[in-house]
Amino acid sequence: MSIRLRLERVARRFGGLQAVVDFSLTASAGERIAIIGPNGAGKTTLFNLISGELAPTGGRIELLGRDVTRMPPHRRAALGLGRTYQLTNLFPRLSVLENTLLAVVALRPMRYVAWWPLAAYRDPLDRAQALLAPLGLWERRDDPVAELSYGEQRQVEIALAMAPGPTVLLLDEPTSGLSAAETRIVHALLQGLPRTITVLLIEHDMGVAFDLADRMVVMHQGRILAEDTPEAVRRNPRVQEIYLGSA
């Protein structure tokens, strides 16, 4: 199995605060890894380091066999990295369709075209429809995303990350703030992701996390506390003590 993502002793300091410490991890093609841990464990910082939005203060990051430690975010995306955000990060005043089209053409050469209307291209439109229709959002394609419900926005969030066809996908709490019914929809959506995509998932809903993950990483104070199969992590007494709590 080929290695898609490799982190070697990655670290990030903010002033005196160690947000991520000596974090090493490898992820193979098609693997689904859930990263869990209490708030402030450094999970989102880790994602920002992988996506390139933050520069690490130490260590090395490899994506598809290439050293990307110093590579800007847009070039990592071009290699096939996609991500979603914990705090919904969409284009609020653009319509659902416009949001999706931006993501669909993000890595195509046509993104540079400045002399021909986007609406004149048929293929991106079809791709957008294929992404939105299963979510029931095609009918709402002309509404600004700001007018969607929170649950719908979370779904657009995932659709945007999927649109360019990533090979490595970082999902930052895709079900946070969702109702039980909405969580089921997103859960099913994630289950249906192609098994060719490597997925790193930060998740607080343990039902979703344990069900989706092949492997689990427990983070605590910027470090890896445990890394194992979901069953083993569930039984690990240290994890229960620190994270799952006796509650």
């Binding site: 071009a78 969409l90 609020p92 005043r93 653009l94 931006l102």
Partner: peptide, 17 residues
Amino acid sequence: HALRGIRESPSRMRTLG
């Protein structure tokens, strides 16, 4: 369209590529 995307969220535009 990309310009409007940048107006709305440059960070998202960057991670989209």
